[in-house]
């Protein structure tokens, strides 16, 4: 059946007017579009993003409920202050980013694991636009989804305890609110770059999650003086400062001494610096190695 029905078909397919393919050439927006289709055509994307939203909003809800049950936590804090808003949002930022780490790593390592990267690079043989497009798509999706989850957290928190609703005019509140999505987005790109270097899902996810949850905390707690110069440069610790109040940073400095305190934006800059260095290394590796 197949032979008889498909044998004449090549004629139609091959001789079809060329107009269908007029203007067919690789452009960066088109490569971004291809990466966009790729991301949304995998079930793992929906799972990881769903999990991320549940974690971010769920931790905020638990935090709000605990404030409602033990309202003494509100004492001495102005309604909607940065301290209250961060007490609502920060718990989610410990575990929530890990779902994005998995998603970002998979966009690269999933292609190596399945071999689909060979198809991708055959379509885009200059290779670098593929990495850049993945960065654009992962950054956009992570930032938008985290921002939406943050908005839901604030609405939910304000509904449970009105004092937790942000006062946008209070010092540091806009930075604390947007700091979460900015931190998570940078951490996702960090994982993407590590994935492009290691080319292996398990290695990438365990390295990045191990760094965030274990290695950095260990280095922060080991009382050894030379570590004072290392701590400010730890990517996740430094980056998380963008979502921390000045008081929190000061308190952290007391039991984890640092040689210098880069501040919220300085710390975020350090995380972005890590991302930039790793992405450049990933780009070099992608260009020079056989696929």
């Amino acid at each position: 059946m197949t032979a008889t029905t498909t044998a004449p078909a090549p004629a139609d397919g091959a001789r079809r007017p060329r107009s269908t393919l007029d203007g067919a050439r690789v452009t960066f927006p088109r490569v971004v579009r291809a990466e966009w289709i790729k991301l949304w055509s995998l079930r793992s994307t929906y799972w990881t993003l769903g999990l991320a939203v549940v974690l971010l909003v769920g931790f905020a809800a638990i935090g709000a409920i605990s404030v409602k049950e033990f309202p003494e936590q509100l004492e001495g804090q102005a309604d909607g202050s940065a301290a209250l808003v961060s007490s609502l949002l920060q718990p989610g930022l410990i575990i929530g980013p890990l779902a994005f780490v998995v998603l970002a790593a998979l966009t690269v390592t999933g292609e190596y694991a399945t071999g689909s990267l060979r198809s991708t690079l055959t379509a885009v043989p200059t290779r670098l636009p593929v990495l850049a497009a993945k960065v654009v798509v992962v950054a956009a999706v992570t930032f938008v989804v985290t921002t939406v989850a943050t908005g839901l957290s604030l609405l939910l928190g304000g509904a449970i305890v009105p004092a937790l609703a942000p006062d946008w005019n209070a010092p540091d509140v806009p930075r604390i609110v947007l700091g979460g999505p900015l931190y998570v987005t940078a951490l996702a790109l960090f994982a993407l770059a590590v994935g492009a270097l290691l080319r292996n899902t398990a290695a990438t996810v365990s390295l990045v999650i191990g760094l965030v949850l274990v290695i950095e905390n260990a280095l922060n707690l080991i009382p050894w003086e030379p570590l004072e110069y290392v701590r400010p440069l730890l990517p996740a610790t430094a980056g998380a400062a963008i979502a921390s109040t000045p008081e929190q940073l000061e308190q952290m400095g007391e039991f984890m001494p640092v040689a210098f305190q880069p501040g919220p934006w300085g710390g975020y800059g350090i995380l972005l610096g890590w991302v930039a260095v790793l992405l450049v290394a990933a780009a070099v590796r992608l260009r020079t190695r056989d696929a």
Partner: peptide, 20 residues
Amino acid sequence: AVHPGRTARQHLRTLAATHG
């Protein structure tokens, strides 16, 4: 050289998209 989680059509669409 295909991601097994995508459909045949999705795989072809991703390749086609790079060239418009």
